[in-house]
Simulated scan of single mutants.
Amino acid sequence: MLEGLKFPTYEAQTDRPLISLVVPVYNEEDSVAHFAAAINGVIAKSWPDADTAPRFEIVFVDDGSRDTTAAVVCAMCSIDSRIKLVALSRNFGKEAALSAGLKAATGDAVIPMDVDLQDPPELIRPMVDLWQSGAQIVNAKRVDRSQDSFLKRTTSRLFYKTINAIADHPIAVDVGDFRLLDRSAVAVLNEMTERCRFNKGLFSWIGFRTETVEYARPARQTGSTKWRVSRLVALALDGITSSTTFPLRVWTMIGATISLLAFAYAAFLIIYTMMSGGDTPGYASIMVAVLFLGGLNLFSLGLMGEYVGRIAVQVRGRPLYIVSTTVGF
């Protein structure tokens, strides 16, 4: 179980900082080696003087892959001591896998990345430079998403507008998990106990001094996306319910407004009946009112159910993930 697993604590052995790249993977046997090779090439090009370059480690978090991803990473660990593996006991989802990687990372700064190289490794140097200049979080903002599909761009834009309109702490627009986090920020994130995890919201909530670098998002170079529509919808609901209680409050206001209108209409009917006699009730008007109010009730109950369900998950207190194997630590 997670509680019984002890990850090593980083102790500085040189004056050069250690940068941890955290890479959640799921069925990416064809991508992990390509990713590691690309990272090594970019690091060598970005810091030609090896004596002054930061030290790096790559922490792959295998999220219950059904292919040979874990075996490929294990083989890479035996070749390169900078590569490490955290294998989860089953598929817990990317948010949980990323949290496991943040927990396992030992660096002075941590950079979550996608294995498909849509998070350009070339940004590592400018992010590290801003961090060494005093920034505690460095966001990577996507200013050009033309390589993404029209549907993905549209739904993403709608999601950011919706959540930032109602969230207690707005999240950075067009900034994914790709960012640099100082050790102090990672320590705070590791202390958070949310079971329904929405990391982008947590990154925004913790604050700290933040800088931004911008980039054009490239096309995916290897593999295929593992995100299904149902998972994206679930992630969006987690994001909204974990970032604000506004959807609950708004139904209080809607209910109060409808109640006031209903009382006013009832008073009108009483006075009208007393003065001129009652009309024969209309079937259509009754059905419209019943269906309208019934639909509102069901929708509001479903919304409250989303919050209650997440409360139940939190109260159970089960671990966010379970680590089955670690290699290279």
Results as ranks from 00 to 15, higher is better:
residue 183 R to S: 08
residue 257 T to Y: 11
residue 177 D to C: 07
residue 80 D to C: 10
residue 23 V to D: 01
residue 37 A to H: 07
residue 21 L to D: 00
residue 301 L to A: 06
residue 96 A to I: 06
residue 317 G to K: 04
residue 287 M to E: 10
residue 6 K to Y: 08
residue 220 R to V: 10
residue 99 S to Q: 03
residue 302 G to K: 11
residue 116 D to K: 02
residue 173 V to M: 07
residue 299 F to H: 13
residue 143 V to C: 11
residue 202 L to P: 00
residue 21 L to C: 07
residue 147 Q to T: 11
residue 232 L to H: 05
residue 79 I to E: 12
residue 287 M to K: 08
residue 202 L to H: 01
residue 219 A to R: 14
residue 95 E to Q: 15
residue 166 I to T: 03
residue 139 N to Y: 12
residue 86 V to D: 01
residue 83 I to S: 02
residue 168 D to L: 13
residue 51 D to L: 08
residue 181 L to F: 09
residue 116 D to N: 07
residue 25 V to Q: 08
residue 272 Y to I: 01
residue 119 D to R: 01
residue 321 Y to S: 01
residue 304 M to Q: 08
residue 76 M to R: 02
residue 287 M to I: 09
residue 32 V to C: 10
residue 304 M to I: 03
residue 211 E to N: 11
residue 170 P to L: 05
residue 163 I to H: 01
residue 304 M to T: 05
residue 308 V to N: 02
residue 169 H to G: 03
residue 211 E to D: 14
residue 111 I to S: 00
residue 46 S to T: 15
residue 210 T to F: 03
residue 192 M to A: 09
residue 234 A to V: 11
residue 172 A to S: 05
residue 281 P to M: 00
residue 110 V to E: 00
residue 72 V to Q: 02
residue 195 R to K: 11
residue 157 R to P: 00
residue 34 H to A: 14
residue 206 I to W: 04
residue 302 G to L: 10
residue 283 Y to R: 10
residue 42 V to Y: 03
residue 23 V to I: 15
residue 289 A to Y: 07
residue 72 V to Y: 00
residue 327 V to R: 06
residue 325 T to H: 12
residue 315 V to W: 05
residue 231 R to P: 00
residue 252 T to Q: 11
residue 250 V to G: 04
residue 202 L to C: 09
residue 94 K to F: 01
residue 139 N to K: 12
residue 264 A to Y: 05
residue 305 G to C: 10
residue 157 R to F: 14
residue 231 R to M: 12
residue 291 L to A: 07
residue 193 T to V: 13
residue 35 F to H: 05
residue 152 K to L: 14
residue 161 K to I: 08
residue 290 V to R: 07
residue 318 R to D: 14
residue 177 D to E: 07
residue 294 G to W: 10
residue 43 I to R: 04
residue 3 E to W: 05
residue 278 G to P: 10
residue 311 I to M: 12
residue 75 A to D: 15
residue 218 P to C: 06
residue 82 R to F: 04
residue 307 Y to L: 03
residue 92 F to E: 06
residue 114 D to C: 11
residue 255 G to V: 01
residue 297 N to H: 06
residue 118 Q to A: 03
residue 47 W to A: 08
residue 225 T to F: 09
residue 27 N to M: 12
residue 93 G to N: 05
residue 98 L to S: 09
residue 215 Y to M: 11
residue 67 D to H: 13
residue 5 L to P: 04
residue 318 R to A: 14
residue 94 K to M: 12
residue 222 T to Y: 08
residue 60 F to K: 00
residue 84 K to H: 06
residue 187 A to Y: 02
residue 80 D to V: 12
residue 316 R to V: 12
residue 34 H to W: 15
residue 142 R to V: 15
residue 145 R to G: 11
residue 295 G to T: 06
